[in-house]
């Protein structure tokens, strides 16, 4: 059976095509201000990769903040919608059957999900509508530090010393970062403070659902090594890290489309 999963995230759109439980094509693209057009482009890209046409795909499931954009809307016409929580849990459990807690940090939301041995969602908690608890926080801090956000993780691994950050709000934290730079604080230490701050907020949220091992980290921020380190230190536990952390919810969606 061939199915597709689409994850219409706040910042990027991810599409995967699954054939008999194997990913045969995947594409990620910036959503921009026309999410539907972006989704169509990413979808067309996966069709080209897999040498398939729309008619070869039996079911398409969509998840993510912008899921309404393509649900029942041609040419993609997804035939099922899924919550972000269910999609993330399904995908993470598929990749790591031993997982019991899934931490998912995307551009605009952070989530912690508890799953049972079958990958079914038992409970979850979400940080939403505030940039302090999501990937946007690191982007804003990268701008203040004048460091590309992709380099922020490696930079923070060079930190020699922990510094405290008091501001919670991303807007106020930007000013704090600027003051720290003026005070000649090494940028690596500031980058670490940024990751420690967001990790501690994610951990507090996750504690509300009770953290059980194994713990997997998925979502865009997984690619940030500095954040991963801060999170592992805060949790005092290793994390399972997928190879393609952004695609986990899309994979989960494609799996559910096949059921």
């Amino acid at each position: 059976m061939i199915t597709a999963g689409v994850d219409m995230g706040a910042k990027t759109i991810k599409v995967v095509i699954l054939k008999n439980g194997k990913v045969i094509a995947k594409s990620i693209i910036l959503g921009g201000f026309d999410q539907r057009a972006a989704a169509e482009k990413a979808f067309a890209d996966t069709l080209t990769q897999s040498k398939l046409s729309r008619n070869d795909i039996e079911h398409i499931t969509v998840t993510g903040m912008g899921k309404k954009e393509i649900y029942m809307h041609p040419p993609i016409s997804a035939d099922k919608e899924l919550t972000e929580v269910t999609a993330a849990a399904k995908g993470a459990h598929f990749l790591f059957p031993s997982v019991r807690t899934v931490i998912d940090v995307g551009a605009e939301e952070g989530r912690a999900i508890r799953v049972d041995a079958a990958g079914k969602v038992i409970d979850f908690a979400v940080n939403e509508k505030c940039a302090a608890g999501a990937g946007s926080f690191t982007e804003a801090m990268g701008r203040a530090l004048e460091v590309p956000v992709e380099q922020l993780g490696d930079l923070s691994l060079q930190s020699q010393q922990a510094v405290a950050m008091n501001a919670q709000c991303a807007v106020f934290a930007e000013s704090e970062v600027v003051s720290l730079i003026h005070a000649k604080t090494p940028k690596s230490d500031i980058a670490r403070a940024v990751h420690d701050a967001i990790a501690s907020r994610i951990i507090s949220m996750a504690r509300r659902i009770g953290i059980e091992k194994d713990i997997a980290l998925i979502g865009g921020l997984t690619k940030n090594k500095g954040f991963v380190k801060s999170l592992q230190q805060g949790l005092e536990s290793n994390l399972l890290l997928p190879d393609d952390p952004e695609f986990v919810a899309a994979i989960g969606s494609a799996l559910i489309a096949a059921e």
Binding site: E108, K129, C130, A131, S136, F137, A140, A170, V171
Partner: peptide
């Protein structure tokens, strides 16, 4: 016009 939907300044 309709107010912006996000409260958070960043969003």
């Amino acid at each position: 016009p309709e107010p912006v939907s996000s409260t958070c300044v960043v969003f």
